[in-house]
Amino acid sequence: MPNNNPLQPKKAVIKKVFKVTPTEKMFVISFVDPKDQEEFERNYTRPARFVQVNLPGIGEVPISLCSPPTQKGFFALTIRRVGRVTTVIHNLNEGDYVWIRGPYGNGFPIDEWKGRDLLFLSAGLGMAPLRSVFLYALDNRWDYGNITLINSARTKRDLLYYEELEAIARTYKGDGVKVIQTVTREEVEGVCKGRCHLYIPQANVDPKNSVVIMCGPPRMYQSIFDEVIARGFDPDYIYATFERRMRCGIGKCGHCNVGSSDSMLYVCKDGPVFSYRQVQRYPELME
């Protein structure tokens, strides 16, 4: 009898562990059963969806996928060590098992963006979900115009994927891809200083025909919304991710819902990616 339960966790094995920053590790994971892997790839078509990582007896955490849907055979998760479950995940080694269910969430509507320029704005850990979109856009380079990515963090050590992004910037030099990395709390050589919205003027995108994609703490969103709209970006093409404490992932449990009873959004089902128009309708997303 086929198991069609959407909440059923599937056994997966950790293939490789990378230490990205002092507090974050990237785990490359693939399912033990090839059928589960196939099903996962069939469902993972839009980048920046999330999965629930399950450790029996310890707990479950929602983690954004940081590998693009174009990479087959495995997926990657970047996890910061903050709590009860992530501490255990950080102690896991290559070859250890985790239980995964998903992918859940809507992901970025990349198909609607064809022919447009892309401007990525990321702060802190926001680079993890944006990496999947960025790499997807690079893998489908002919579909999109110029691409600029602004990655910011507190210190240079905390910049996620610093080396990788520098290498991408070198590879795609002269191809309309620009990477700006900036830190806010220290002065270091080689990286810019200040918050990410200061570098929007340096982006090589056409405001009239571009998409703004951002991820970071919701506190930064309002100032960036104001900034990009003042610069003439199209408000219909501004997207941000709003994470909540997603529990079930399929819009049943109600841990992540926003709005009132007559118009309600579940972040796990209708999000975590929301457009600027949705944010205006549901201001509690910003809290």
Binding site: G57, I58, G59, R84, V85, T87, V88, N91
Partner: peptide, 14 residues
């Protein structure tokens, strides 16, 4: 047993 198991896994109980 749950408390003890979480400490063995170097984390803490809920």
């Amino acid at each position: 047993l749950y408390f003890l198991a979480t400490f063995i896994w170097s984390t803490w109980p809920e």
